[in-house]
């Protein structure tokens, strides 16, 4: 949320300070944001699970340069992802596509939640059904008292 607000403020500042150059500045800022958002979804191949937008490594910076170049060439977000997937496989995507075995990543948490809710529901039902149990206690106590009485009487 903060980033778009900062962008809008930056664009307004540039537009008011340099008349005529506003449109150009707006395009540049938008492209930078877009490149950053794409870079945040691409895994750096020489780091430990870091996106290329946040890695200080030279390779990640070179990959970010490639993203900027492709945007300047008019390539879409999807075309840029496809370019990197063609070279590094789906491994390069920090959020893999929800297809095939990857589906387990999306379905497993939902399935675990469902199973958990079912178990809680079953447990609650069992407890409700077992509620009248305390009534049995006086009967047991009575039986014990009767046994003691019999013993004393003897």
């Amino acid at each position: 949320m903060t980033l778009p607000i900062v962008t809008v403020v930056a664009v307004l500042l540039v537009e008011t300070s340099t008349p005529g150059a506003g449109a150009k500045a707006e395009v540049t800022l938008t492209e930078t944001d877009l490149a950053h958002s794409i870079g945040k979804e691409l895994r750096c191949p020489v780091c430990q699970g870091m996106p290329i937008a946040e890695s200080p490594s030279q390779m990640a910076q070179d990959m970010m340069t490639r993203v900027h170049q492709m945007l300047a060439e008019g390539k879409s977000r999807q075309e840029i992802f496809d370019y990197f997937v063609e070279r590094y496989g789906e491994w390069v995507l920090l959020a893999p596509k929800p297809t095939g075995m990857n589906l387990t990543l999306w379905l497993l948490p939902a399935a675990a939640l469902l199973i958990g809710l079912l178990l809680v529901w079953r447990f609650a039902r069992k407890r409700q059904g077992a509620a009248p149990v305390p009534e049995a206690k006086p009967a047991a106590a009575d039986a014990t008292l009767e046994a003691i009485r019999d013993e004393v009487n003897e």
Partner: peptide
């Protein structure tokens, strides 16, 4: 320059 070829070949090290 700029690892263009390395990126094109998916080099990771």
């Amino acid at each position: 320059p700029a690892s263009r070829c390395a990126i094109d070949y998916g080099v990771a090290g």
